Computed example of a mutant assay.
Amino acid sequence: MMIIKKFVFLIAILTAVAFTTRDSVSKSTSVVITAESSLFVKGTTNVSNFSCVFNINKFKNPIQVTYHLKSDKMVFNKTALILETDCFDCGGKAINSDFQKILKADRYPQIKLYLKEISQIENTLDVHALVNIEIAGITKSYKIPVKVKNNETLRIAGDLRISLSDYNLEAPKKIFGLISVDDKIEIHFQLGVIEK
């Protein structure tokens, strides 16, 4: 259930902002994720589905973005999106508590997404974002296709499937082990981003 981005992805959103500049000098800016954005994690058990929604108002805006161009890629330095695990609402006290336990939130209260680089998908405004996601002290890299819409507010959307076991996470068993959570979870994000 580790959310995380589109996370994303979320972090991927930050990437598209940089496409507005085309020189190779290192650039620095800051962006704000708007209140119309959404980020949630979906999972399944052997009896039902669940969804944990991140409280968008809890983003620590503005987010600093530093990047430079390298060949046909934008390379980012120290560009991170931090998600506080206690800002997810799964729809009830018990499932929220289970979600926190799965993420080992007592020891690791944050999910960290580091934007590493983006590259434009040919003949589109869409990009591939290389993102490092840190959950429970373990970091994994993902290349995420991200859809970008550019109007007054930059809109970034994407999906990512991850495995709990990749982060050495295990869902708690309920009712003598009769209810189990699937290892695969999905992270969905739709982010509005404006330059500060």
Rank of each mutant, 00 (worst) to 15 (best):
Q64A: 14
M1P: 00
I13T: 14
K93L: 11
N96W: 05
Q64E: 14
A80E: 14
D126E: 08
V8F: 07
F40D: 10
I121V: 15
V25W: 02
D72T: 13
G137H: 06
D86W: 04
F40N: 10
T44I: 07
M2E: 09
M74F: 15
M74N: 13
K104G: 08
C90Q: 03
V25C: 03
I4P: 01
F50P: 01
L10C: 02
D23L: 11
Q120M: 12
V31N: 09
T29H: 02
I118T: 13
F59E: 04
A94M: 12
P62W: 11
F99M: 14
F54S: 04
I144M: 12
T79V: 11
N55W: 01
D86Q: 09
D98Y: 12
A35V: 05
I118M: 12
V148P: 00
A105I: 05
C87Q: 14
S26E: 15
A35M: 02
V17D: 10
T124Q: 09
K116I: 15
K78Q: 15
I13C: 13
Y114I: 14
R107E: 15
N55S: 09
V32Y: 03
N46K: 08
S48V: 01
K147H: 10
I135K: 03
L81N: 00
D106S: 15
K149T: 14
F59D: 01
I121F: 06
D86Y: 11
N123M: 07
P62S: 08
V65Y: 10
H68M: 11
T85P: 00
Q64W: 01
Q110T: 13
F50T: 05
Q110D: 15
A136N: 04
K149M: 09
P145K: 11
T66M: 08
T139F: 05
G43D: 04
T20D: 13
I56H: 02
M1E: 08
F9S: 09
A129G: 12
G43Y: 04
V65G: 04
G137E: 10
L83P: 00
L125M: 08
Y114Q: 12
S141F: 03
L83R: 01
V148G: 01
I33K: 04
K6S: 13
A129Y: 02
R22C: 07
